[in-house]
């Protein structure tokens, strides 16, 4: 009974997903591109890099990348903490 109810809710959710997909804007025509065209035009003089994605990641959104590096460090220490009981003394 519970499983049938869950399946029904899941099917309703999938139906909603497909309705949303069909009524979405057409693929390949982003409506708001002002910020990105500013990046593309000014990345070479402001960030001094040919690769616009790199200049967005490391220059315009540098704080984001700093937080991301911190997340990686936290994950490594979390794995070490979770498995330390079984490993003994090495690492």
């Amino acid at each position: 009974m519970r499983k049938a109810l869950g399946l029904f809710a899941f099917l309703a959710f999938v139906l909603f997903l497909f309705a949303a997909t069909i009524s979405l804007r057409p693929f390949g025509e982003p409506p708001h591109a002002e910020m990105d065209s500013y990046f593309i035009e000014h990345a070479q003089e402001e960030a001094s890099a040919n690769n616009v994605v790199t200049s967005v990641v490391f220059d315009y959104r540098g704080f984001d990348t700093l937080g991301e590096a911190t997340v990686l460090f936290t994950a490594v220490s979390g794995v070490l903490m979770a498995l330390r009981h079984y490993g003994g003394k090495e690492k």
């Binding site: 982003p30 910020m35 984001d64």
Partner: peptide, 25 residues
């Protein structure tokens, strides 16, 4: 557009970290 690609880069690295943590648990 370059900004969605930069956001996806962030998302992929965080996904790897979260997967490693889930497997450890």
């Amino acid at each position: 557009l370059p900004t969605p690609q930069a956001l996806t880069l962030t998302s992929i690295v965080i996904g790897v970290a979260v997967t490693a943590l889930m497997l450890a648990f």
